[in-house]
Design a protein around this nucleic acid. Structure first.
Lengths: 135, 135
DNA sequence: AAAATAGCCTACCAAGACGATAGACTACTT
DNA sequence: AAGTAGTCTATCGTCTTGGTAGGCTATTTT
């Protein structure tokens, strides 16, 4: 399951994607429109900024905005950043890989099936961007 | 990610599937062979028994065994029981559905994509059984 | 009937994740 | 200088996770 934090992140990003190239948007505006706790949203946006997905401007007329066009931000990137691994097992994860103890990956049925699941999932979230979230 | 509990459950079930129709197996034997904490495994097996996946026999010569043939136990069933929802959002879950607040499911891009992910995942785990885990 | 075996049940606990909040600080604009 | 708005650090209650302890109950063997 995606954490609430991830859901908030997607809501905020979708909001900013819809306003792409229209200047900075206040955290408070996003919080109000998307009904996200203000201070919690601050953390999330900061994290997205540090990952170069968002950029910001301080002072009057400031706010947050997308650092690149919506179709350049993959869903997989956001999920990995805010939610963590996409795979169901560490031993089939591309970005959070960990060797499986007590189980030979070469001869593990669970490993093989979870690899299939991972690929099916990645096939979707690696090929969808923020642009696809705007309806 | 699957919890450790889920991974233990699959290891134990795989072990029992390989010994299907060969009589009861001791918890302690499974724990030792699969390197699972004994008392933790007790809980897991009991839960699987209550879900009619396993059955048990008490006293000497007792132990646990599969309640039905390995090809009748779907991976999806085990995951839902031990790990919880398979979908990434409550609003696209079949067995753990919850209405999405602040988001119209009819016009939500995230909803649509997560529905795709769910279906891709289910397509795999609903069609694989314990039999497929034995290698 | 007694003893031994092995699963069943209830309770508990430490550590960490999750969701959220508070307050002070820094940078930019007017 | 004043005001605005993002940045940083810290904290906090609750829930989940992973694991442990100990006694109870049912079954079998002696």
């Amino acid at each position: 399951m995606l954490s609430k934090k991830s859901q908030y992140a997607f809501k905020a990003l979708t909001y900013l994607a819809a306003k792409y190239n229209q200047g900075p948007v206040l955290i408070s505006e996003i919080a109000k429109k998307k009904k996200i706790p203000l201070k919690f949203l601050e953390n999330i946006l900061l994290e997205l900024k540090k990952a170069d997905i968002l950029d910001s401007k301080k002072g009057k007329g400031g706010g947050y905005f997308l650092a690149k066009s919506p179709d350049k931000v993959k869903m997989a990137t956001v999920i990995r950043l805010i939610n963590g691994p996409i795979a169901m097992l560490p031993c089939v994860s591309l970005y959070f890989y960990e060797r499986c103890k007590n189980c030979d990956e070469k001869h593990c049925g669970l490993h093989d099936i979870m690899l299939e699941v991972r690929d099916a999932t990645l096939n979707i979230v690696e090929n969808r961007t923020l642009k696809d979230l705007i309806v």
